[in-house]
Design a protein around this nucleic acid. Structure first.
Length: 195
DNA sequence: TTTGTGATGCACT
DNA sequence: GTGCATCACAAAA
């Protein structure tokens, strides 16, 4: 997991991030759900060009783009090629469980990191992390240990270009934010044993 | 199980 | 003023 890994199309990076490890200061787990946002993508924050909020998306690849969602939550993205990024939507929590449970105020492992807002709350990610490189603390990324079975589907919560299959998930994982129906995507979500 | 809604900040028209 | 890359909880079915 080096700068070159991120300096590609967000769609490719998003797919390859499934199964990768993500930790923040010792708390985290395995990435099980992502979404890709491209420069010419009306659903992307970068679509209308650089602004104060999305400036990081136009900076170097391999940095964190954090923004406030619905005035309440934070969402974490990994910057890829200029104007593109991958939204990290869900983790399979593994390390630092007590810390994450404390931040979330609940102990259910399924609800701990299954959503972009939940994941940021569990890992303690805020706007303070916006623009930070992913190659040094508090971030710690690690490549997938085995070749994961990846399913695709429609992105969640957007109103434009809703049909693109740019959401990726680990097949069979119970830690994803919503099921992959197979409609906009392909494989059934219960194709592999749970994770 | 599905649908509805309040909370709450800020970018953009 | 409008619309969000969301979440939790209530109510309906």
């Amino acid at each position: 997991m080096n700068p070159a890994f991120f300096d590609r199309r967000a769609v490719d990076v998003a797919r390859d991030l499934i199964g990768a490890g993500l930790d923040m200061a010792g708390a985290g787990g395995v990435i099980v759900e992502t979404e890709a946002y491209e420069p010419d993508d009306p659903a992307s924050h970068s679509f209308r060009g650089p602004s104060a909020r999305n400036a990081v998306m136009f900076g170097p690849a391999g940095h964190a783009y954090v923004y406030r969602s619905y005035g309440i939550h934070w969402c974490l993205n990994f910057v890829c090629k200029p104007g593109s990024a991958v939204l990290i939507r869900a983790l399979h929590p593994i390390r630092g469980l007590e810390e994450m449970e404390r931040r979330r105020g609940l102990a259910d492992p399924v609800l701990l990191c299954s959503g972009p807002g939940r994941l940021c709350q569990a890992l303690g990610i805020t706007i303070e992390h916006n623009g930070l490189p992913l190659f040094e603390p508090p971030f710690a990324l690690s490549p997938p240990e085995a070749e994961p079975i990846v399913v695709t589907g429609r992105r969640i919560g957007i109103s434009k270009v809703v049909d693109l299959p740019w959401r990726f998930g680990l097949s069979g994982s119970v830690h994803i934010s919503r099921k992959f129906t197979g409609k906009g995507g392909l494989a059934p979500q219960d194709a592999a044993p749970g994770s």
